[in-house]
Design a protein around this nucleic acid. Sequence first.
DNA 1: AAGTCGTGGCC
DNA 2: TGGCCAAGACT
Length: 351
Amino acid sequence: MRDAGDTLISVKLMQWYDRHARTLPWRVPPGSTQAPDPYRIWLAEVMLQQTTVAAVQAYFQRFTTRWPTVQALAAAHDEDVMAEWAGLGYYARARNLLKCARAVAEMGGFPRTRTDLQSLPGIGPYTSAAIAAIAFEQPETVLDGNVERVMARLFDEHTPLPQAKPILTAYAARLTPQHRPGDHAQAVMDLGATICTPRNPACGICPVMADCAARRAGTAPSLPRKTRKPAKPVRLGIAYLGRRADGAWLMERRPPHGLLGGMLGWPGSDWTTLPPEDVPPLGAEWRALPGEVRHTFTHFHLRLSVQVAHLPISAQGMFVPADAFDPAALPTVMRKAYALGAAHFNISEVS
DNA sequence: AAGTCGTGGCC
DNA sequence: TGGCCAAGACT
């Protein structure tokens, strides 16, 4: 249970947060009487899943400008949301974002409890706790990568992740206060992001340095321990960039589940360990370009060779007109393939 | 319940 | 350069 030592740590963290909280577009300054907007908290938390604050900023700005409310987002077209998400990665988040927005709009607003929040698409254990605490002032305990690291160090916990998760959750719960739980959660995450960092933690300026068991033991930089991940295999593939005489591009909408699900892309082979079969989407004079696209996904490296063809105006298929084509709406690997292929079509690449 | 699922920055 | 890392969720 929470004891006097836990209370002291959480008080120190709150005092530090009151002075050093980062100003972020989705955040209400500590001590403000203004209530945070659940829509903006939810949107930011989903974007921040496994994604850095720096990468999220511009996307958050564009989404909230284009869709200022959850009702507006719920009314958006799927393709527009996917295109706006392009480049941010983990595209299941965008699909679930839209499902969630429509469910919330139907319900007339966001539910306020962690349990109800977690029943919505794309809202799991972390995000449900974060929204409940930050948007609705409920004393829920958030556990993200930052909190895991801070707890492992404060309590010098050497059990490796993910096995240590329940232990670290219990530590984090001990520190969670009944008052200002949202600011407490953000304080621990800010501490992890700016001081208690994975490498070279700035223990000398840490507000809870005196309370940190790993600091005393000298183990802070090596915590939390993690089990090794297997090496990424290499896969090979072919992408076909076909351009019609009127400038339209032959493209495809990828199936709604799996890798890059729901995103726009180039027709291509499967991505396989052995060299893929060369089966172009249309009969034409396909030419293999020199060079290749290299791209690394979560669990494999991809080497993509690119073929190009000029297609007749009579060619049948899904063509994206020249004036509707925007490389920014493509996932990064497809944008790389375009960058390699564009020169062949005498298109100056502004990348 | 491990495997799947992106991307960019860092050293 | 290549592995690690980032406010994880889903199956």
